[in-house]
């Protein structure tokens, strides 16, 4: 079904829906990078499906052309697992925010990592709940006191996406930055090419509720290549890092989970089991 016309330019992957995002929001950079990665890989746009949850970031599903599912808060990975099981040939991108993926959807995140179905999970991490107007998320630092909900900060250590993904069995873990577009496109391409579950945590500044994230531009730094394929080495790298190291943090070929069943029986064969005359062998 590959579209032969294949005018694979990034803007072909962008829909006509105008984003609701604030000017300067990091999510624009992620949208642009994804369309470039699709174009680079010449993916037939009707065979890419973007599944998302709820949040500013999750709105991205409607901004990409092609098929998409903008579901409920936190459940995108589960919805995508069902879709992938039913339609293995589709390219699946799951996108959402840090709240969506690590808080309300935390359990699905763990199980998506260990299930290792072939899909790319892009978490647009701004360390805040943008859509609900600026509450602390699991990745917010404990002493961030700018939310009315937690005026003295959460007092709770941050969720460590990369470390947890590794522990949960993910086979590809990377970190990108919305403000470093070329590197981000390269990471997304590698993630899309990786067979199995690939997680890309994208630092994606929230202009409105975390303006101080502008400083990320100066603070981010690359990790060394090549990425470790050994989990304990990757753990050391991830644990010793300041959360601002960009690049692939871990990549390993692990068995990809994908039911592929051929028709071996007709319904009538199954129904025959109920007949009294059938004596089990």
């Amino acid at each position: 079904m590959t579209s032969v016309s294949a005018a694979h330019s990034a803007k072909d992957y962008k829909s006509e829906v105008k984003p609701v995002w604030c000017p300067g929001c990091g999510h624009f950079g992620v949208l642009a990078a994804l369309t470039k990665a699709f174009a680079y890989l010449e993916l037939p746009k009707d065979e890419v499906v973007t599944v998302s949850g709820i949040g500013c970031s999750s709105r991205i599903a409607a901004y990409l052309d092609g098929y998409g599912f903008h579901g409920v808060h936190g459940r995108a990975l589960a919805l995508a697992a069902g879709l992938k099981a039913a339609r293995p040939e589709l390219t699946l991108v799951v996108a959402g925010g840090d709240g969506d993926g690590f808080s309300i959807g935390g359990n699905h995140f763990l199980h998506a990592c260990r299930r290792n179905m072939d899909m790319t999970y892009v978490v647009m991490d701004n360390e805040v709940y943008g859509m609900t107007k600026g509450q602390a998320s699991p990745t917010t630092e404990p002493d961030w006191s700018h939310s009315k909900l937690t005026p003295r900060g959460t007092g709770v250590p941050r969720f460590q996406p990369a470390a947890i993904a590794l522990a949960a069995g993910a086979s590809f873990i990377a970190r990108g930055f919305a403000g470093a577009p070329n590197e981000l496109v390269r990471l997304l391409v590698r993630a899309l090419e990786h067979p199995g579950f690939s997680m890309v945590q994208v630092l994606s500044p929230c202009q409105t509720y975390r303006p101080e994230q502008k400083a990320w531009k100066q603070a981010v730094h690359p990790v060394e290549e090549p990425a470790p394929a050994d989990p304990s080495e990757a753990a050391r790298l991830i644990q010793s890092d300041d959360g601002l190291a960009l690049g692939v943090l871990y990549a390993q070929r692990l068995p990809v989970y994908q039911p592929r069943n051929r028709v071996e029986a007709e319904l009538a064969d199954l129904e025959a089991e109920f007949l009294l005359s059938t004596t089990p062998p």
Binding site: L79, A81, G82, H108, N261
Partner: peptide, 26 residues
């Protein structure tokens, strides 16, 4: 599976309902 379909064990019912929404969308 013998009919060419598939079954996924979900992590919870929040997942199972969303999984069937995904496959049905497919």
């Amino acid at each position: 599976t013998r009919l060419g379909g598939s079954l996924l064990q979900a992590e919870d019912e929040l997942a199972s309902i969303n999984m069937i929404i995904g496959s049905s969308f497919g």
